[in-house]
């Protein structure tokens, strides 16, 4: 189970990074979102993978999942949404003002592409 979980995390991270390396805004935003899924899963797994752990404190609970990574990830999810929203709307603003959805200065981009 641990092997499968970490494989999933790795694939998500790799796909997210590949998209983040693209030259247009939308794939970059999608890539960052994907990357944040991977990071959240990773962070979550630092508390161990608990099956059938009790969610709330009760007297007859056999075991609990580690609550601390959960609290951290919960805020990370919401912050991740704020970041995605901000970057995508920045991308729209750039398109509105500059008429382009490229992440790089165009001149530099062509130089970069040639090299």
């Amino acid at each position: 189970m641990e092997a499968l979980f970490s494989t999933v995390t790795g694939f998500l991270a790799a796909s997210g990074l590949y998209l983040a390396l693209r030259g247009r805004t939308f794939p970059v935003v999608v890539g960052l979102t994907l990357l944040s899924y991977a990071v959240n899963l990773f962070l979550f797994s630092t508390g161990g993978l608990t099956t059938d752990g009790a969610a709330v404190i009760s007297d007859d609970a056999a075991r609990y999942a580690d609550p601390l990574p959960q609290a951290l990830v919960l805020t990370a999810i919401v912050i991740g949404f704020a970041m995605t929203a901000f970057s995508v709307i920045l991308a729209m603003r750039v398109r509105g003002d500059l008429g382009s959805d490229q992440v790089n200065d165009q001149r530099e981009e062509s130089k970069e592409e040639k090299s």
Binding site: S6, T7, L17, F42, L49
Partner: peptide, 18 residues
Amino acid sequence: LAAGFGGVVTSLNYALLT
């Protein structure tokens, strides 16, 4: 680059989980 990154993340995660 992405494959390397994913590999490192997987290894790290697996090492941590075990």
